[in-house]
Design a protein around this nucleic acid. Sequence first.
DNA 1: CTGTTAGCGCTTTCAT
DNA 2: ATGAAAGCGCTAACAG
Lengths: 357, 357
Amino acid sequence: MAEVNGKIRIKDIAELAGVSKGTVDRVLHNRGEVSRASREKVEKVLEEINYHPNIHASALASKKRYNFHCILPDHETADYWAYLEMGIEKQVEELLDLNVNVVIHYYNQYDVDSCRQVYASIPDLKPDGVLMSPLFKDSSNAFAAKLKELNIPFVFVDSQVEGVEPLAYFGMHSYQSGHLAAKLLVGDQYDIKDIVMFHAKRKGETGANQTIQRKAGFMAYIKENNPDCRIHSVGLYWNDRDKNDIIMDQFFRENPGIKNSVIFNSRVYMVADYFKKSAMKDMTVLGYDLVDRNVKCLKNGAVSYLIAQRPEIQGYRALKALAQHLIYKQEVKPVNYMPIDILTAENIDFYVNFPSI
Amino acid sequence: MAEVNGKIRIKDIAELAGVSKGTVDRVLHNRGEVSRASREKVEKVLEEINYHPNIHASALASKKRYNFHCILPDHETADYWAYLEMGIEKQVEELLDLNVNVVIHYYNQYDVDSCRQVYASIPDLKPDGVLMSPLFKDSSNAFAAKLKELNIPFVFVDSQVEGVEPLAYFGMHSYQSGHLAAKLLVGDQYDIKDIVMFHAKRKGETGANQTIQRKAGFMAYIKENNPDCRIHSVGLYWNDRDKNDIIMDQFFRENPGIKNSVIFNSRVYMVADYFKKSAMKDMTVLGYDLVDRNVKCLKNGAVSYLIAQRPEIQGYRALKALAQHLIYKQEVKPVNYMPIDILTAENIDFYVNFPSI
DNA sequence: CTGTTAGCGCTTTCAT
DNA sequence: ATGAAAGCGCTAACAG
């Protein structure tokens, strides 16, 4: 039998230390000037007892208001970013009574300029904290430097940018996820000699190293465990299905017999759809992210594995990290890797309906 | 750009409705008598606006105290139950300022009588809510009936008991997890013709149908996908290693060449240790639960897959469910299946260090 | 049945 | 530098 309790108030500490509530508050928050003598008396009491402030009283009385700004790619309902945003909204609810105001800004994820424009508009809003997804590496890097200069704490979700140290990062360990992808796709099956890897053909500023890292992890595993396996890389245009069909038609005409494919992003359903349309059976397909269209493919067998990364948790915790840092003055862990979830037809249902927060 | 806000107080509602704060409070909580006229005026205002009570003010002012009692098997540090208890403790922290008192009671998980004894002691404590793990089916059933009679809400973690309807259940879908276990262990490899399945030899009252369900799911998958596969069942004594060695020695002498084994509980490390000691290579071993000893086996390759079920979340949410029901008067979802996590050497690190709450 | 009022523990302002 | 006091929004007790 174990019991938990705790009912020490600031008033109690004040009485024990022989000072007033106001003084205790001043030492607790290092605000205002306190004489050495008073400070020591209070600190002595604090060491002896186990004081936990009543967060409800604290939140209720606090007058300070905070403005947090989130910068995300625009997105469709039920895609990866939508889930991340749902996590943010969850945290917003909890922050409401803490006098925190949260604004979400969107940029076109296929247009660097739109992203830059949003970044440029932020400083004038005098944010107390910023949450961002650094899709565009260079622009994000520059913006992060600006925030550092303005002394505004910021957190990253989804991907990291080398050389930038946010207050905290919430996302997947991309390299290791690629490793896992390779293990799931080929494992110890040494008879697999060909794998096709689809990637996005993009123009303009390179994205964050998310996909690059995933690919690197994948290659490393193959090289170590199945060195004779050939990896074919095929570039696709996510917004031009017809063009993709032609590209894939040609590829599989030239390389018949390839049964294993991997896609390092959430567009795996497009590839699965192609296989279905082309009546290509027995394909093993692996992709990323728990989004509606992929779930459907997983269930009907068109996709074998999905690797997921808890986007809601990313959004939820990233925003929370700002509050922990700014409001509760707590330490925040700088790097927070999400679990790399393996989804199959057999366990997907319990992920889809699970309120992860 | 999207913004969120909301600052309507009871006082505002009172003014809008032309009544006093007290009356608004009475209709919000259905307490005390309110005239039809007043009630309707207030309800009309409530429909038009979007009122969210300030939980901090509410918690601070509330005088009511709650006593929750949790009944768990005793356990070692870092085993499955320890994780579940960590989740409970997390929720306890959040409940502290809500005037909730939580006591955890332990029973010997190998002794029905100790469990019955604890159950018998609970009603005198006048609990407002109970959290329990119904390991012993019949006794738990009887106790649940008693709680129903006393009108005390209770929640189940870890396993369910047929015919009993707790306020909520938090745990895994055992049958489906068995299905998944089979898929992972043999998948489409039709050349696998023998699997050995280890189970616990227990005495006394049968446990909950947890293990039985897992086994059933496993068998069903094999039957459907690999009907020629033979499944050998071997009973072990978890608390007698020497005896187990003899049993396993004999089994593998009589059945050489079996490479695939499954254990439907967290003792998989015992089997893995045996294989290691006996220098049996190339064994594929699958078991349950993210506990320290199993993690070690996963990392050194002695275990291939672990299936995990988020015990912290179970404890955390189960206790929270009591608070939601009793304090916030919110609806609680009666059946809450945890995601069935697939752990391998490649992704285990990100589960081990992940603060799931 | 309804309005008024005294706190809950903490923050913050204002005298001293 | 420090104490006293007002008040955050809500609950609950009390007086009418």
